[in-house]
Design a protein around this nucleic acid. Structure first.
Lengths: 330, 330
DNA sequence: TTGTATGCGTTATCAG
DNA sequence: CTGATAACGCATACAA
């Protein structure tokens, strides 16, 4: 592998001049420029990024930690992140944590070891203390899932309001017995979506009944299972709000297996608007997050921190949208 | 950020001793070990990976280039890659190329710039020449999609045989008019799957008719569109083999819209066994690839090259499996 | 067992 | 406009 020294030797100049050529410095005569360029081409020389980053103490690289690359929801966010990053000269590298704290910490260690200039964290498993400490060392942004009260910027939607609107839609269709399929975990969005559900009920004068609430893990299977239990209640719910599309689809299949029609016998609403929600029959009513914009905004906020344009933690709430399809309205 | 110098100073030893402690050298007295460990802890010191990699000319990092992180197919492969990598002390970083040659080349540039020790390429857009040149410089493996005749190891399934078996299954059910929904692109798998389709027809004494072949881009929409055309043929096909699950699901929805029942009026078979193929109604008959094992094998092969245990290019063909579900058999 | 000195490949400072 | 040289943070050969 050719180094800058080889190029310098071949071109008959010093390494400093080669470096100037590489970095587009104006102070190089046309003849030397040509000589150096030729030497670079002949040797097929590529600057060693490690050496450069070490010298500049800046890598122009960003880490994106996400819990599950299989989730198409994150894929769209990553697109936004990448586009903004590329526009600003940064490369992004994806780190799949698999919701495993150990894996996440391994990547965080790489981050702390100067491998990247900053990171975007989605659904981090770290504690308040760990996050705070990390933010003191390295620029980070929380995207989608976040913890409040931290000196760390975040980008998300208003989960409480989104859930409220979804449940309000069901109530507006005349449903009185509206069930809820959520998740019990450390994520704020789970709590907020449930709070939105409860607020919609209360405002409509409907009693909040914990018996109408089940909990899964966002998966198809868990939606299927929880729905089975809810359907055994008497009186049976006539509508269900699920905090993920996959659970909603599981719930629909569960209802169908019981001989119920969707939406005639029971209406189902999901959350996320994954591409599959259009393909499923009946097509799924759901809440759409502006995934691409979430990614763009997160990356812009991160760059602002890295380049020290902004220092104060910012909290961005992006617009969401209720998408009404066949699973709630015939 | 504390450096090895700070630690050395604080502990009252030389940087060499600190380095020995970090790297677990045996030749350190218990007392110095303790002193250094304490200094490391107090300063919250993390070795700078750039410096280390630069010095060792080895990063212990692997790049995984994939065309689309949204495709759950790749997610499972990545799991296999990660598990083997972690077991061997490597970290993997995902690079989303979006099937864009420019993006891919940017990551390849990083690879050539010593940011990683090697790479696993899935569905690369590069030419024969580019790939050959790259392989001369850096350890790489082709996974799933590959080009033949290159001095580069690859891991995949036998696409021709898999397609053959799938179509044979349809023929075995009594179908004579078996259509095909494929893709026209540079990928060998597209060609091989079509060849398998043709071989199965020929062996059964069925004439291969190009009119029964349509082409999409693996997506739901394209499957839907192509199926519409195939259904307008006279005589109408009674079975369809699709080279992706998404196209198969699009095809099914298309058939349903025409008032046809699946599988009674028309049988549909997909390819990939994405998790969604189980959730869809009717559940989808499809070809399952051993995604996790593909990833494991690819990573093992890469490590063998990096650590120079093997030098000869190897070609691995993993077992696949035909999974029969409701879309072909009632 | 420990320390000194060197170099990995860059970029940046300073002198010319 | 160009070159010599130091420094980024680390690991290691060699000396002590």
């Amino acid at each position: 592998m050719a180094t800058i020294n080889d190029v310098a030797e071949k071109a008959g100049v010093s390494v400093a001049t080669v470096s100037r050529v590489i970095n587009g410095s104006a102070n190089v005569s046309p003849e030397t420029l040509e000589k150096v360029k030729q030497a670079i081409a002949e040797l097929n020389y590529r600057p060693n990024l490690l050496g450069r980053a070490l010298r500049k103490t800046k890598s122009e690289r960003i880490l994106v930690l996400l819990p599950n690359i299989a989730n198409p929801f994150y894929a769209e966010i990553v697109k936004g992140i990448e586009d903004v990053a590329n526009k600003n000269g940064y490369s992004i590298m994806l780190c799949n944590t698999d919701s495993d704290l150990e894996r996440e910490k391994k990547y965080i260690k790489m981050l702390k070891s100067h491998l990247a200039d900053g990171a975007i964290l989605m659904a981090s498993e770290m504690t308040y203390e760990e996050l705070t400490e990390l933010a003191g060392e390295i620029p980070i942004i929380q995207c989608c899932e976040y913890k409040v009260g931290l000196p760390i910027s975040h980008v998300s939607i208003d989960n409480e309001m989104a859930a409220y609107k979804a449940v309000n839609h069901l109530i507006g269709l005349g449903h009185k017995k509206v069930a809820f399929i959520g998740a019990k975990n450390q994520f704020l969005s789970s709590t907020l979506r449930k709070e939105g559900y409860i607020r919609a009920l209360k405002e409509a004068g409907i009693n909040y009944d914990p018996a109408y609430c089940g909990y899964g893990d966002y998966s198809y299977k868990s939606g299927f299972r929880v729905m089975k239990q809810l359907l055994s209640l008497d009186p049976r719910p006539t509508a269900v709000f699920c905090i993920s599309d996959l659970m909603a689809i599981g719930a629909i299949r569960s209802a169908m297996e019981e001989g119920l029609r969707v939406p005639e016998d029971i209406a189902v609403c999901g959350f996320d608007n994954i591409y599959f929600s259009r393909m499923f029959k009946p097509t799924l009513t759901t809440v759409s997050q502006p995934m691409y914009d979430l990614g763009c905004t997160a990356m812009e906020a991160l760059i602002n921190i890295i380049e020290e344009k902004s220092t104060e933690p910012m909290h961005y709430f992006m617009e969401h949208e209720l998408i009404i399809r066949e699973s709630t309205v015939k």
